[in-house]
Design a protein around this nucleic acid. Structure first.
Lengths: 193, 193
DNA sequence: GGCGTTCTAGCACGGTCGTGCTACTGTCGT
DNA sequence: ACGACAGTAGCACGACCGTGCTAGAACGCC
């Protein structure tokens, strides 16, 4: 019976090292060697739990999805549909440091996933999950044209996120909140909310 | 008196080779060697007109800005402010092949510019130029809250663009058009339009 | 202690990269 | 023809990369 590490904990530790590198240097800064160094491990140790770099990146991205899901599960029920929708969508806007760092990883990742066959499926899954999330938030508001509202809202959220990632503070978190709420308030709906 | 090439034409030819590579392989696919091969030149010839890779990338990006500006200058005046604003903003949405390819380059470039000190200034200039453009289009509509409308609309346009780049056809061009027009029609304004 | 297994550590290979640098070619003016 | 210059071509270096592979260390069980 050999010594065992907690492989899941190790993978998460390495994922977080990757996030830090992505935030500082973009995805180009991520190599097995650089991640190992950032995590205080030898490259062989990293490669023990991730056979390929693509696997490492895919895992790092999937952990972000988990964290978003955890935050969503921990949301208090909101009394009004509009407040509930806002609360949900705010979990995928970079309104604080944690979400900002997640957004940086998301942004770097989707750019790579577009052209890397090994990451494409994961990128599309993330896109689908986000689109579904936006759809569910909007369903609370019963928009008159659900498809249009979905494309509109999803683009708005990702556009705000992109801008905040590219130039932190522009827009500021308060501005993002105002834009989102204002947008949702103005959506044409089929019943009073 | 030595032989002379048309340096500007050569630079543009090389920029277009870079665009093709970016569309296929992302910015990672762009090296002096790969661009030279794509352009049918020797690497030395590429390096004769671009001293560094960053210079090549910055130029390739600036040419896109020129093309957008040319399209804007060629726009027919629209009779109604809403139509005029739509026409302007559609020039920066990937509604046809040409604009889609430009958007792919833009997307790849801004992701790199975030973390590459040599490209940051150019990335920020592009951001500023687009933001100004959106601001001017909105000014035609006299929004009640100009700043909010600007952040809202600019995010929407870039979000639509991002989505179309990441997953071509999702949203489809017609959907983008509808989303944009619907959005502009719903903007609160200070006077009738 | 021996064994089996996991985990750590690191060498090595082939590959690509950006960039410094040099030599040669092609052209035009004198 | 010669000279000057722009342009072409390519070698080379140091750097880093992903990944294959091996050896040794650590650990628990018998």
């Amino acid at each position: 019976m050999p010594r065992l590490i907690d492989a899941d904990a190790r993978r998460r530790e390495i994922a977080q090292a990757a996030w830090r590198l992505i935030g500082r240097e973009g995805l180009d800064g991520v190599s097995v060697r650089s991640v190992a160094s950032e995590a205080g491990l030898a490259p062989g140790s990293v490669r023990h739990v991730f056979r390929t770099q693509a696997e490492l990146l895919a895992f790092a991205m999937s952990v972000i999805g988990e964290r978003v899901a955890e935050r969503l599960a921990a949301l208090d029920p909101a009394p009004a549909p509009l407040d509930a929708a806002v609360a949900v969508l705010e979990q995928i806007l970079p309104l604080d440091d944690e979400r900002h760092r997640e957004a940086e990883v998301w942004h770097a990742f989707v750019a790579r996933a577009r052209v890397d066959p090994e990451l494409r499926a994961v990128g599309e899954q993330a896109d689908d999950a986000l689109r579904d999330l936006v759809g569910q938030a909007l369903a609370l508001l019963a928009p008159a044209d659900a498809e249009l509202a979905l494309e509109d809202t999803y683009a708005l959220v990702d556009g705000l996120t992109l801008h905040a990632v590219l130039r932190p503070g522009r827009p500021a978190p308060d501005t993002m909140r105002r834009v989102l709420r204002d947008h949702l308030e103005r959506l044409p709906v089929t019943k009073a909310r």
